[in-house]
Design a protein around this nucleic acid. Structure first.
Lengths: 150, 150
DNA sequence: TAGAGAGTTCGAGTGCACTCCAGGCAAGCG
DNA sequence: CGCTTGCCTGGAGTGCACTCGAACTCTCTA
């Protein structure tokens, strides 16, 4: 019965002080480096792994995580999915398909296609609502001008 | 540090079996009529009133709510705001400005303009992500065709 | 060798937006 | 008159996506 979708504040307010390029040429990044690079918190990165959203991250002999460039690619992609409002459950489903191997490419394409349709629908919806906002803002601006003049 | 915003499932999945026109020509609607019309649950309608998002709803002698056409208009507008991901706190702020009267039209225009910018930014963001989805989907489709043929 | 700093786990806590429940009242019907 | 239906309230519960805390280990620098 809910009528809308909330969008985490971070996504909305985010000021992108996050470096656009990888820390350097290595293939081994600590969790805090990855946090700085992706904009996710270290908490979130660990949580993603816990719930099964990361495809096994390497560890040092003492148990510390070392993320690879492949991990960064993955985080980048699911970051896009999150950005478009895909719930974590959906990303989990996708991650499971990837884990299952090549015979799931069809299912993956299907999942992403459905999501793409959803994104397109939401874009259209947002654009429709822009008109209402324009109309209201114009009303207010006109009212203000009247106040200034009269 | 959150990177995204979740969008309540209902908004995404909603099949609009909701009548597009008002129940009838009256100016007095029960809470369940309004629920059917707006797509909000009766719980949500009462909750909106509780938190101060509704500008005083009439009551019968026995205490039942009777919504007016004006209330329906208001719900329609804040419904649009919700649809664009404005948090309830923001709508509350807007509602307060409306309550304060005509001298707040400037502030209201500002609030809505800021929100409009935000919506525009999000549309652009979604559109950017569509490209990534297209690219991935094409990859998968190509892989599938290879499997079929080879 | 002591202390700072960064990492670890797992479970608990948070904020948002609802969503539901218990217990009760009022109107209409057979 | 009793029953069903629809409404009322205040507070508790839910689901999602993080976010934090406590207690601990490891490495590095002074």
């Amino acid at each position: 019965m809910a009528v809308t979708e909330s969008v985490p504040t971070a996504l909305r307010v985010v000021d992108r002080t996050i470096p656009d390029r990888r820390p350097d040429g290595r293939d081994q990044y600590t969790i805090s480096e990855v946090a700085a690079y992706t904009g996710l918190s270290v908490h979130t990165l660990r949580w993603y792994e816990r719930i099964g959203l990361m495809p096994h991250v390497d560890r040092t002999s003492t148990g510390q995580r070392r993320f690879s460039n492949k991990d960064l690619d993955w985080l980048g992609f699911i970051g896009k999915l999150r950005l478009t409002g895909m719930p974590v459950a959906g990303m989990l489903e996708y991650a499971d398909l990837v884990r299952q191997g090549d015979e799931t490419v069809g299912a993956r394409a299907e999942l992403l296609t459905a999501h793409r349709d959803d994104v397109r629908r939401r874009i259209a919806e947002l654009q429709g609502t822009l008109d209402v906002l324009d109309w209201k803002i114009n009303l207010y601006d006109a009212a203000e001008r009247r106040t200034e003049v009269g």
